[in-house]
Structures are given as structure tokens and as C-alpha cells.
Write a protein that binds this DNA or RNA. Structure first.
Lengths: 305, 305
DNA sequence: TATCGGTCTTTTATCGACAAGAGACAATGA
DNA sequence: TCATTGTCTCTTGTCGATAAAAGACCGATA
């Protein structure tokens, strides 16, 4: 009744690792595998027993040997390596976008549970966790209400984002010159330049780079609330980029140029210049996001029973 | 298996309402009671049937009449009117303070469930919700880790608080002069002056007033993230005030004086003056909070396995 | 025709069960 | 003595069941 996603994930990882070894080589000890596979020894053993049964490794447990390279084909499918809660998260986000959920929509736990083929508890737990993003709201003893990815939401999000990121960016610049962060920033700058050169072909790669760049800056705040807030931004952008592909190349190109200016400002370590670059970039990011939000009936929530 | 806290709470409310009526008076219709008692009709009916059985109201349902005033003694005890999740919240907070939980402590769901006499699901759900305050952290497939109410926590909390509240305060001042907020602020100012005159006796009442004042300001931001963050501050102060009573009178008196200055600044509608008053008050609030945090081993969390 | 109470269906809150997984301790061997 | 595997216990993740609560529908009636 618990799901064996951990086992399957670990098994797949072990297959990948053993596939790089040669038959005859000795397998690392359980305690060492525990570290490389990042699981408990209980799980590691389960994996090893399974491999033993399949004749991949020898049965002499005191001195395990790789008998043959495991076949890549008998790994578990990716979907089975996700815990139920991770699956629910994925399914919910997809469902939300696919059904184009309107603000005010009441979310029914039971219905979702049936649709996603999980128990209601799984849904409840997810919704509880998800509510921290303020996109849904609980009505006690009744269901959850979708507040909507509205214009207001985007504005409130960016208001906080701007407050947090200007603060983080300025604090980034106060780091000692030998801090590792500067090296990482330099790397990110290089990647930006490279991407800009190949923009016509690789513009899809930007969203990943974008996230790494902003996360680097926000982490500089050393503030758990600021860092945590970036989770929400990541989420929004992740799914937003999936559903709005209009002008993507152009938008990304413009953003890269802004980032380069922003990075230069950071290297200058001049607070007022940093603030300027940061604000100007966020302003245009906000504009982009707002443009992609459909016009929705205002106050949809207030009109509900 | 659901607990009947809603019924009991509604019943108590009905008893309180009926106690103000005279025998012979007509009882409002179910649909009207539903509104005054703030529950579903199903629950209202259950309450009415119970009252009917106890002979408090007549059995003629088409035209219910109060037969006698319900006795105040047979209401349900307060504890039974709390939902399980509310009980867990209360018990958890008390437990946390009572046991003086150290940073790095691993929280065991099962143990808490046994201690609080609820199922593990109840605990899980609470911890999940509570984790938004960043005082606990989940280790997947293992327990929860208490991060501790440390000096760092307080500093990070106040960093965000200051960002948010200065923003809110300045936006408060831009409200139109006929906005209701100004009236409420005036009332709060009056209460401050009153409290200051009776400070020796009523200094306990400050924490309530404090919360209302800051909440008023934060609500002016019209930003769900900012408003939401104040929940955390309320929580911290609520429990902090319960455990640190040293110099309470003196601290509160000083805070009132600062508040009055802050309020005056708001009425002046001068942004720079507001910012100054706000920052200066928050600075001393932070100082107070920090002073009350015991010196704890730094980086206690990092030292864990 | 709008409101009332009666009845029935659907949904939520909470529990207990149990397999998977984590971790502690014991036994063994180099 | 230390690391290794074997064994056992305790905890977590997930499910399904069930009572309480919400709410829809209906006929009556004023």
C-alpha cells in the first residue's frame, strides 16, 4: 500500500551504473552503494537481490561480482519511478492547463481522485501543499476554490518578486571577490553569449538558463523566505512557457540581452546600477507575462455563492 | 469517523442565540438560521432536532416556537467544538514550546499521533500545512526536521517583514482621504492613547492591538503574498509573547510610543517620513525579539547526519 | 412564485490498516 | 577494530472505509 517508486528509481539508477562496468568487476559494498544510489540500505539490498535473481550479479554476497551488463530495456518506466505525490502534482498541473480552469472554479477532491486514479488522501495532501502558492483556497467542509491565474495574481507576484530580487541582487554584489558565486555567474554569462549566437536554433534552452540565473541571485539573499518564493516563480514560468509559445524566440532574445546588461551591472558591483538593471529586466518580464494572460472577467471570485 | 465539531459549535451558538429570546417567540426558518449560525442546513436541522428532543423548542416544525430558554450548562465544552486539525495545531504549538524543541530535532509523526490521541493522517496534514512557515522541513521517506526558532530565523523573518511593511505603509498613505482605512487608523490611534494612559494595568492588551495595527497596514498592500506573510508574524508573536514575559510592560510602553509616531507619519502622508517611522519601529521590534532568543549552537542543522 | 421543510446524493474529514522504506543492532570476518 | 552483511523494529506513504456535513431536488403551501 505504499508504492515502490523508491525501489524502482534506485533499481534504474543501479542499472545505469552497472552498465558502465565490465563483467567480472567487483560490486561496491552495500554501504557504499547506499551513498552513490542515494537510498537506504534496505532498498539497496532489495535492488541487489533482484539483480542477483536475474543473474546480473553473482550470488556470493560477501563478494559480489558483475556477471553481465544489465540490459537497458528492463529498467522500469519513468512514470513508475515517481512517488504518488509527484505524479499527482504533475497530473494536476497538466489538468489545470488543459482544462483552462477559470477563476472561481470549485475543485472536487473526489472527482480528481477518480480521474487521476489515486485515493482522495493523495489529492488532499497535494492540494494542501499546493495551497502555499495562493492559486487555490480552502473553503472548510466544502471544496477548494481556484483563484485563477489572473492579471492580479501576476501583478502581486511581480511586486514581491521585484522587492526580493533587487534586495538579493544588491546583496549578491557584496560577496567577497573570491566567492564561488562570481565564477558561476561568469559561466552563466558565457552560456548567455553562446545562446545568443545560436539563438535561431536553441532559443528553447533559454528558460532553463533563465531559472538558473535568477536562482543564483535569489540564493544570495540567504533568506529562506526569499529563496522559497522563487519556487513559485519557477512553477509559473515552467508552465507558462509551456502554454504560450508566441514570439518565443524574439522574447528570449530580448531577455538574453537584458540579462547580459544585468550581469554586467552585477560585476560592476555598483548598487544603483544593479538596481536599475534588475528593475528594468523584471519590468519587461512582467510585461511579457501579462501579455500572455487572457482577459478574464474581473472579480470572478466575488461573484460566487 | 469525521468528528462532529461543526454540529457542536453550531449547537452552542444556537443555545447562545436562543438564550436571548423569550419563551413563546417564533424560531427563524431553517434557511435563515443557516445564515445566522453559519452552517449548512443539514447541520442546522440536526441542532433543531436535538433541541426539539430536549423540549427547548416545539415539535411543530412548520412553526417552531421557543418553549424554554436553553440552559447554559448543557452546551458542549469548547474543546469539543474544535475540529481535529485545529486541535492538532494547538497541541503541536504547545508541545513545541513546552518541550523547548532544539534545532535539528527530528519530529516523529507516529509518536505525536500517539501523544495527541489522533491518527497519523491528522499529524501529517498539519505538518504539511505548517511547513509553509519554514520552521520545519521534510526529509522524504524519513521524518520532519525542526529547523529551530533561531537567531537566523528571526533575522530572515524581519528582513522580509521590513521589505513588506515599508512597501505597505507607503501604499497605505496613497489611499483616498475618504477611505475607511483612515477611520480605522484613527480608532486604533485612540486605543493606543487610552492604553498608554492605563499602561500599568492593561499592558497585556497591547499584543492584540499591535496585531490589528500591523495587519491594517499590511492589508493595504492588496497583495496576497504580503498579507499571507503576516500570518507567520502573528504566529511567532502570539507564541513568543506567551513565553517571554520579561519586561513586558516596559517593552509594550515603548512600542506604543513608536506606534503613535508611526501613525502620525501615516497621517502626514509623507512617504519618506513614513519609511523612517516604519523602519525605526521594526528595528526595535527586531531587537526585542532577538533579545528573547536563547543563544543556541549555530549551524545545528548542518551538523546532522 | 418564492419560501419552507423533507428527502436523498455527493463530498469532506478522519481513522485504521498495511506494504515499502529507513534505520538500529547483531553477527561475522578480514 | 573496523567494515560488511544479516536480521529485526519502527516509521512513512498510500489506500479504502465511514460518519458528518454540504447541498441539490422536490412537493407543499401561504
Amino acid at each position: 500500500m505504499k508504492g515502490d517508486a523508491v525501489f524502482k528509481r534506485t533499481y534504474n539508477q543501479a542499472v545505469a551504473n552497472f552498465a558502465l562496468m565490465n563483467p567480472g568487476e567487483t560490486i561496491a559494498s552495500e554501504n557504499n552503494l547506499k551513498i552513490t544510489l542515494d537510498a537506504s540500505r534496505t532498498t539497496v539490498r532489495k535492488v541487489l537481490f533482484e539483480m542477483e535473481a536475474k543473474g546480473v550479479i553473482s550470488a556470493d554476497r560477501a563478494n559480489r561480482i558483475l556477471l553481465r551488463r544489465p540490459k537497458q530495456q528492463d529498467v522500469f518506466p519513468r512514470s513508475e519511478t515517481m512517488s504518488i505525490s509527484a505524479q499527482v502534482e504533475k497530473k494536476f498541473m497538466e489538468w489545470m492547463l488543459r482544462t483552462d480552469l477559470q477563476p472561481g472554479h470549485v475543485i472536487n477532491e473526489l472527482e480528481l481522485a477518480r480521474q487521476f486514479r489515486v485515493s482522495t488522501s493523495g489529492i488532499r495532501e497535494f492540494l494542501n501543499r499546493f495551497s502555499r502558492f495562493k492559486l487555490i483556497e480552502k473553503r472548510p467542509n466544502s471544496g477548494w476554490c481556484f483563484r485563477g491565474f489572473t492579471r492580479d495574481f501576476a501583478l502581486e507576484l511581480f511586486e514581491v518578486r521585484e522587492l526580493f530580487e533587487t534586495r538579493s541582487a544588491i546583496s549578491f554584489a557584496t560577496r567577497p571577490l573570491d566567492s564561488e558565486a562570481w565564477t558561476v555567474l561568469k559561466e552563466i554569462e558565457t552560456e548567455h553569449r553562446k545562446l545568443l549566437r545560436n539563438i535561431t536554433k536553441q532559443y528553447h534552452d533559454f528558460s532553463d538558463l533563465d531559472e538558473r540565473f535568477h536562482q543564483l541571485i535569489n540564493n544570495a539573499s540567504n533568506n529562506r523566505f526569499i529563496v522559497d518564493f522563487y519556487d513559485l516563480i519557477s512553477l509559473i514560468f515552467h508552465y507558462h512557457y509551456q502554454w504560450n509559445k508566441v514570439d518565443e524566440r524574439k522574447r528570449n532574445q530580448a531577455a538574453i540581452v537584458e540579462h547580459l546588461d544585468y550581469i554586467e551591472a552585477l560585476f560592476s558591483r555598483d548598487p544603483s546600477r544593479i538596481e536599475l538593471a534588475c528593475k528594468s529586466h523584471l519590468k519587461s518580464a512582467r510585461k511579457t507575462l501579462l501579455a500572455s494572460i487572457k482577459t478574464q472577467t474581473p472579480n470572478a471570485i466575488e461573484n460566487l455563492p
